[in-house]
Design a protein around this nucleic acid. Structure first.
Lengths: 109, 109
DNA sequence: CAATCACATTCCAACTCGGAAAGTCAATCC
DNA sequence: GGATTGACTTTCCGAGTTGGAATGTGATTG
């Protein structure tokens, strides 16, 4: 089970992007930009990083009207994100499986 | 309830440091350095950042023998860490309260 | 065909990270 | 008691990252 801490995913804005995409399958560029509250260039660059890592695909459906950009995670991107989340939960002291055992131990072994 | 995403805490190595300290109340410099696998200078600088933020205290018990450095989170540090963890869980889609609902939805609604 | 829209790139300034080297300072050693 | 050592702390650097603004690009619209 991939439980890898992924620096590419960890960066604040990229973590938010991944979280959003993991929950909605795909989103529009402008929407993402507004939610994150960053400039076009900033979102564009983060998307490129994720894309270069093979974590997301960018599509520009060339239908009627202006070309809007849509992005969504690839299977690999979902795995990387899920793995990162697992790694973080493991860090937080959550056994990933049971909702139990997350209580304050207070004492170290 | 503070559910703040904290950049100071978010940095990979600092997040690890906080997680360790949150679970063990206090740790020795050398131990932390070995667990993180970084150079003395690197740990020293991260601790300083956390200290400057008021998140941890550094004590050098001047008893018998060499002076060893011990660090531990302050109440504020614990709050910041806990708050950050909550912010992340909220991002991941966990209601923060119930241990439920943390199951893979797989499908988006 | 000149605007405009929706991004993508480039250009920058400001950080941040990490390791190596040098600096501190108290505790030992000779 | 001055040299040495241990345990960090600072400083010095080189390499990257981040974000916004300016600029570029290609398709569309007036």
């Amino acid at each position: 089970m991939s439980e890898r801490f992924d620096e590419v995913v960890h960066a604040p804005n990229r973590l938010r992007i991944c979280a959003l995409l993991a929950a909605s399958s795909s989103a529009e560029f402008a929407v993402l930009r507004d939610i994150l509250g960053v400039a076009d260039s900033v979102l564009s660059k983060h998307l490129k990083v994720l894309q270069d890592a093979g974590y997301l695909v960018i599509s520009k459906p060339t239908g009627r009207g202006r070309v809007k950009t849509w992005v969504s995670l690839t299977a690999e991107g979902r795995r990387a994100y899920a793995g990162h989340v697992q790694a973080l939960k493991a860090l937080f002291g959550e056994p990933a499986g049971s909702p139990e055992a997350a209580r304050e131990h207070g004492r170290t072994r």
